[in-house]
Design a binder for these strands. Structure first.
Lengths: 347, 347
DNA sequence: TTGTAGGCGTTATCAG
DNA sequence: CTGATAACGCCTACAA
């Protein structure tokens, strides 16, 4: 085979094959190449075949950048998560990616690392890349800023966050209901001294769940000890530390507890570990309820009673909502009911 | 304020603000805007300020597509993983993203969903987007195809896979050593009848670990029962099923076992659950060794003895290797030694 | 210090 | 059915 455009003898970056290279080899214009690649317009079977061969021979890859530039759309959807190492989010991403893939779209993932500055930068960056829409999971930015950032995007969906008057469609989990389910279950089983292992205050769902917890307790006429209300980061270690403190506190004559409602399954798992180390049995001495139903929840011992959230489905729906938005529809916000899954940690 | 380009009265997609809009408002040429945005060339303080105000007023976001098109680089690195819901990979992604972020780069994630067709499509797609480099984790495609696909990229790094003569730099984990460590530990503690819960055959590391397992057993002069060698998908359920079969087999008079070496921690956790349900105690009756040291490994009961792999560091190094490649260096392949972390499941 | 011309790779539009 | 031509938004190179 002889030299072709794109061939390089030095160690330099390969000149990428273009439209024009293919056109030259096939003996047609670039427009014809474009038509063949995109299946638009009418091209005779003969030339179509010539072009096809040229494409194959040169291993031509259309430049999506140029294509997006002229078409004004990227067929890419951005998705921002607070922390991809939190097992809650990969499931959402997976759902979104499957739906996007089916429609010929690509997903660009940005990890905000639980950091507002990076969340902001991610949103700006995605706007710079002209993604056709963004999905933001558990956004940590304040309403005002989020609204500004989102309005730079042609379509946006928020998961687990609502911004009144903002441009985004919200897909919510009913956290108040979730908290009621958890508290109700524990009280029903005779637990009375409940502790709340709440999430970080910057998380909207953490605030709702706390509110729901307090409301449910109030409605049941059960008092809550301030010493048994805490915030923690949504990670295993933080749950461990908080529960360790409670156990030590109880040993030192502080308020005892026989049930924990945790912000998420990671925190719940940490709490279980702490309790075990403190010599408390789960669920005999303390029952624990998590949230999210991550895969691990059913795999560990004791398996975790938790609130199931349809993570994969949320991801899919978020992408479908972006598509609806593109078609000019304005889907309404939706709220999903979590489902209490009773397992060993709080039977 | 009067009508500006970009203003829309209908409900149509907003015309995005361009270079030229800013130039018009600031009363300069587009070049001056470009210079201010990029901090290149000299611009008088006065005009710089005017341009800045115009940018702010219009909320101008440079179009990265156009920029990439002229500059010939995207400042984006692609990363392909077999399954983002496997907790091994988010840590790598996180490491890669942190390193990329620090250098002003963006990461584009593609999930191959353990599917060769999608891995192929992802690689092609990233090439179409002209990413400056790709990182492929645990590639499942055959050597030949992988080589072709990777050579379409200006720089590429493979994690956990080596392709002789291919264009990519490989970052390897010493799976043979890992298998030896696991087997050695179990034998040392008096376990003799070891089972191998191997990974899928399309995974290179699964093949190495299997090989290492067999070699270590041979070297120790311990025989291996074929009935105690199996493959499974790298997920919890598959580990559960395989171990259940072994337990049933043993009860029915088949070969007994007192140790399991698992392909990864997920499979190991599944095995532990199966053993427990079959009435076998871990570690008293059967010791279990996992691999990866995912976060859960230390959080569950019994905590998992496993081989630690520096996931985050691998991700970081992969990105740094891409950068080195860009600078024209040719870094050599590197191999990392896994570290045996002894915990409760195989003390 | 600032501006003009040209091109990056592709597609829309309009002629032939 | 096919091809010229003009964008898309930005930047490199060269002038002024």
């Amino acid at each position: 085979m002889t030299d072709r455009p794109g061939r390089r003898g030095d160690g330099s970056r390969p000149r990428t094959v273009t439209n024009a290279d293919v056109a030259a080899v096939a003996g047609v214009s670039t427009m014809t190449v474009s038509r063949v690649v995109n299946g638009t317009g009418r091209v005779s079977e003969a030339t179509r075949e010539r072009v096809r061969r040229a494409i194959e021979e040169l291993d031509y890859q259309p430049n999506q950048l140029a294509r997006s530039l002229t078409q004004g759309r990227t067929r890419t959807i951005g998705i921002v998560v607070p922390d991809i190492t939190n097992p809650f989010f990969p499931e959402i991403v997976r759902g979104a990616e499957d739906a996007a893939w089916a429609a010929g779209y690509t997903v660009a993932l940005a990890n905000a690392v639980e950091d507002q500055a990076r969340e902001r930068a991610a949103l700006r960056n995605l706007a710079g890349h002209r993604v056709d829409g963004v999905i933001v999971c558990s956004a940590r930015l304040p309403d005002r800023e989020l609204t500004d950032l989102l309005s730079a995007h042609p379509a946006s969906v928020l998961i687990n966050r609502q911004v009144p008057g903002g441009p985004a469609v919200s897909l919510m989990v009913d956290d108040l209901l979730g908290a009621h389910l958890a508290v109700g279950h524990l009280l029903e089983r005779g637990r009375k001294r409940l502790a709340l292992l709440g999430g970080p205050d910057r998380s909207a769902s953490a605030r709702y769940r706390r509110e729901g917890f307090l409301a449910a307790m109030r409605e049941a006429g059960v008092s809550v000890s301030d010493a048994l209300l805490t915030h923690c980061e949504p990670v295993e270690d933080a749950g461990y530390e908080a529960a360790s403190r409670w156990a030590a506190q109880a040993r030192a004559g502080g308020p005892g507890f026989d049930g924990i409602v945790a912000y998420n399954d990671l925190a719940a798992l940490g709490a279980v570990r702490a309790l075990r180390e403190a010599g408390l049995r789960v669920p005999e001495d303390v029952a624990v309820v998590g949230c999210d139903d991550i895969r691990m929840a059913s795999a560990v011992a004791p398996s975790l009673t938790t609130l199931r959230i349809e993570k994969y489905g949320l991801g899919r729906l978020a992408v479908e909502t972006i598509f609806a938005l593109q078609r000019g529809r304005k889907p309404t916000d939706k709220t999903f009911a979590p489902e209490l899954i009773v397992r060993e940690s709080a039977p």
